[in-house]
Design a protein around this nucleic acid. Structure first.
Lengths: 147, 147
DNA sequence: CGTGTAAGGAATTCTGACACG
DNA sequence: CGTGTAAGGAATTCTGACACG
């Protein structure tokens, strides 16, 4: 079960996740006509999913939409917002990559005692780095590497 | 910009994210009639979003659907799968909580040098724990706490 | 129990045009 | 440029019934 949980979070279902335009609009606060316009201009993309006729957006696109909107709200023009947002696409991949690469095991003994083992602590590889949540606060500790 | 990125990932838009039944079915491989049946039996829930008339599922529900399906595929009956899946609801919250509590700063200098600062390293609070990706591999290191 | 299907109606999304600016 | 709206048609989802088992 513990391994299943770790697997589950690594397989975070976003790759196959596509959303309708109405759901993207509701989640981001960007109107459907805006989304269609942005797509027409090439700022965002929608996939055509096999067998579906309507527009579908990926989760990554949703993130991008939200970024653009935030930048727009800060006063940038659409073009400027789009340009800035491009640098940030990598954020999501970064988190994925970190979770994939380092979350060796997630252990949930009970509600109040949860641990994430992140494997060998590089400055001292004889120890494992563990994140531990106690009473709602996350702390790090080192434990001897399991043989 | 660095702070914006950190904020962005913390605001990972899943709270306000709702998906149509077709998208949940496509993402999980569970048919629409299954989803409606599961809902009727109370195993999963769908929200009625203000102003929308169709069924909408939260991202957490999607995770649950995927868990149930996985367990079913392993040979469990629907009821047994539902029961087992209940213990696992916390996984997602765990990741969120960890990211919220510990990702102090995400820094992306360039494609090949990315760092996540996780704040004071509890065994030695004069140092910050930093996860660093070099050439695709994540490693931990300690740096003096920024004053 | 657990899932599928045909049926008719309701809600959602589509495109192209036009408005405002 | 960037967004909204009215319009008519197309695709999606709805419920309740019935089938299979």
């Amino acid at each position: 079960m513990i391994n299943d949980e770790t697997e589950l979070i690594k397989k975070f279902p976003v790759e196959h996740l596509v959303l309708g335009i109405g759901d993207v609009a509701a989640a981001t606060g960007v109107s459907q006509s805006q989304l269609r316009y942005w797509e027409r201009k090439g700022y965002i993309q929608s996939r055509v999913v096999a067998g579906r006729k309507n527009r579908k957006f990926s989760y990554k696109t949703l993130l991008k939409v939200q970024q653009i909107k935030t930048l727009q709200d800060e006063g940038l023009t659409l073009v400027a917002a789009v340009k800035q947002s491009q640098q940030r696409d990598a954020v999501f991949d970064t988190l994925r990559s970190f979770v994939d690469g380092r979350f060796a095991q997630i252990q949930m003994d009970d509600e109040d005692h949860i641990q994430i083992n992140m494997g060998p602590f590089d400055p001292d590889p004889t120890q494992d780095l563990v994140a531990e949540r106690i009473a709602g606060k996350w702390q790090f500790k080192l434990i001897p590497t399991a043989k």
